[in-house]
Simulated scan of single mutants.
Amino acid sequence: MSGFDSNPFAEPASDNPFNDPSVTQVTSSNVEPVDQFNPFPAHPTDNLAAHTTPASTSPYQPAVLQPSTEPSPQATAAAAQVNLLKQQEELERKAAELDRREQELQNRGPSGKENNWPPLPKSFPIKPCFYQDFSEDIPPACQRVCKMIYYLWMFNCMTLFLNLLACLAYFTVDPAYGVDFGLSILWLILFAPCSFVCWYRPVYKAFKTDSSFSFFFFFFVFFCQVVIFIIQAVGIPKWGNSGWIAAFSIIGKHTAVGAIMMIVAILFTICAVLSIVLLKMVHRMYRRTGASFQKAQQEFSQGVFTNKSFQTAAAGVASSAAQGTFQGN
């Protein structure tokens, strides 16, 4: 009956390759098939750093071809030109700085401080020419007298300007006195700056430095100024001064013009009186300083011999004399 139960169409057992024991052993085992094999199994990576292999510390390094760093001639020339331009800009900046400092030094007086007189605005083209500070330069005992002389100079300038207006009025009523108007302009232009330089600045320097030479120079020039004040107050006709004589000569014909000229004559008289009083005050203070004519001579000699202009002139004269002596021989 077993023969009838078998499948007549079944392949023989010996002909089936999958019935081979080696194949059935593989298919029935727990080994993963090839298509499910993972070459990177999931293992913990915490201890990887501990098992890393250090890089080779061999002293022999692979040869690397370094590119050439030598600049081309064009690049060298361009760099040199840029360097020259930078140096030129630096020199120009330094030259401008030196010019600025030189200008500042020129604006400073002999004391090394910046000039502040006359007090002109910074935008004005003319800069101050003198340095003046009573509280800093003048001793307290001399400040009052020095300021009074300064106020006398300003009062004199105002009087000279009013004298010009009075002479102009005199000229309008009588054309024959045109010379007075012309001379009044000259006196204003001449006496205003000269009086500041010739007698006010010397007495300022005398009080500042206790200079005997400056005191003597002030006494000489200021005495001449006192004489000029007296002449102006007198008012000699055709001399350009609206003094007493000129005022009395016109007041009978033109009262208004004569009144203006009399006001100017009074101002000239005040200038003369104040100048005499201040001259005595300065002389009294000068005597207290212990100054003398011998001391003034010594200061003058030292000032002359230490003057660079005098030294240059003396050297030129000596050189010319020596050349003339050699040529004569």
Rank of each mutant, 00 (worst) to 15 (best):
V257E: 10
F213A: 10
T209Q: 08
D210W: 04
G252Y: 01
G252E: 06
H254E: 02
A259D: 00
F207N: 07
M261W: 13
I245D: 05
Q225V: 12
M261V: 01
G243D: 03
W239A: 14
G252Q: 07
H254S: 05
S242Q: 01
A246S: 12
I230W: 04
F219K: 13
S212E: 10
S249K: 10
I250P: 08
K208W: 03
A246P: 09
A247H: 04
A259F: 09
S214M: 03
M261T: 04
F222Q: 09
M262P: 09
N241R: 15
I250L: 00
I250H: 02
V221T: 12
F219I: 06
I260P: 06
C224Q: 13
G235P: 00
G235D: 01
Q232Y: 14
F216Q: 14
F213V: 10
H254C: 10
P237E: 07
I260G: 13
I266Q: 05
V234T: 07
C224S: 14
W244T: 12
F222L: 08
W244A: 01
G258D: 00
A256G: 08
S249N: 11
S211W: 04
F229T: 12
F229P: 12
I251S: 08
A265I: 00
K208F: 12
F222N: 09
A233L: 02
I245L: 06
A265V: 06
F216W: 13
F218P: 01
S249A: 02
I231C: 15
G240K: 11
G258S: 00
V227Q: 11
V221Y: 14
K208N: 03
